[in-house]
Design a protein around this nucleic acid. Structure first.
Lengths: 204, 204
DNA sequence: CGGTCTCTTGACGGAGTTCAAAGCTAGTGG
DNA sequence: CCACTAGCTTTGAACTCCGTCAAGAGACCG
């Protein structure tokens, strides 16, 4: 397995570069980022959030990979999303309303994140126009992603959803066990196995 | 049917009140809203957006109801969302990237909307911190809604999704034909009919 | 080496679709 | 105001997609 915990560049610089694609930060704003985001090293299978807790941080993933999921009454996991390098992750509902979460966020690989507390993010929102703006854009992009996923879920069968997943997240397909991908697609891992068999037969 | 095209209060005031629940607008900001949002009366079955067009406006629904949907290769409609009084609607992907949309937005009831153009919204974003902030919040709420829907789609069967829809949107259940609701839930209207029959049998 | 997790496979059952037909409703035009 | 028509709703039979359960075969790690 790739155990590359060390990012190639400075994590905080990665974060600042991430903002640069929207509206770049001023020197002052960069200093605030450096002051308020703290780095955290996360081992595989460690949880950033568990059901019943309040989601206290908003996370920027520097390296590694996470899954956010719920567990139903039959103890089955349902993956809402994955987050790898450059992605943001949090349970907004819990984070903003400061209420207990129904979700888990767990490292599926050793990872490094930069985290910010609720009150510190509100401080940035209040004092710097640009953070409201940049986070608006970050969330808009996530919304488009979710919208496309809903459309896919209500309009196609599992075969097509798997093909789209392969195209959309080629960097994830070989990093995740297929049980996790099946959970994301809303099917059982047994059925995904049958889809893969059928597809590999067709290709050659 | 309720053909109440006339809203009970001034549409622009409704919009300003809608912002009030987040961060209320100053007099100056209210004036800008009055200047840049324009009212539009929409008859039933009229489209605000059709596939292939660029989504030129962001809409605030004053009265009436819309559906946003895609049409697949079998000419079937798939409802992404409904928007009634107080809701915002647009195809963000098309609106922000100024690219052709894959979606339709159609009035399912006679309606009144307030619309703003892309460039005017960017003007508000650029010149007033509060619009970036308020739209960030509006979109965060939509994101939570979408997230809950994805979780529901991947983790439950059609019976449960229909029960949740009834609880979540009681004001829509009797305004929409069940074909539209079935499309939103990702099932056929025939199957929804069977679900309803089963449920009505259980209740009494 | 033994345990745990992942992946595969098959037989069976259930959830949801397809197609066709019929009755019903509501909007439209004359 | 009636007649017409398009769309909505229901129902049933046959079918497909996908889940459940059980078993076995690898892969990895301590």
């Amino acid at each position: 397995m790739l155990e590359q915990i060390q990012p190639t560049e400075d994590p905080l610089q990665m974060l600042i570069d991430n903002f640069k694609q929207f509206f770049p930060l001023s020197t002052n704003e960069q200093d605030e980022v450096k002051r308020l985001f703290t780095q955290r090293i996360v081992k595989r299978k460690v949880f950033l959030l568990q059901e019943g807790e309040v989601c206290r941080h908003y996370y920027f993933v520097v390296s590694g990979c996470f899954k956010m999921f719920a567990i139903d009454t039959n103890f089955r996991e349902h993956n809402l999303q994955f987050a790898a390098e450059g992605d943001w992750i949090a349970d907004f509902q819990s984070f903003y309303n400061e209420e207990p979460s129904r979700l888990y966020i767990e490292a599926v690989e050793p990872a490094i994140v930069l985290q910010i507390q609720h009150k510190d993010l509100l401080y940035l929102y209040t004092n710097y126009h640009k953070f409201d703006r940049n986070f608006r854009i970050i969330i808009e992009r996530k919304l488009m992603e979710y919208q496309n996923r809903i459309l896919l879920n209500i309009s196609t069968n599992a075969d097509e959803r798997y093909v789209v997943f392969q195209k959309q997240y080629p960097q994830l397909i070989n990093r995740l066990p297929s049980t996790q991908i099946a959970s994301y697609l809303g099917i059982t891992s047994e059925f995904l196995s049958k889809i893969r068999k059928k597809a590999s037969g067709k290709k050659q």
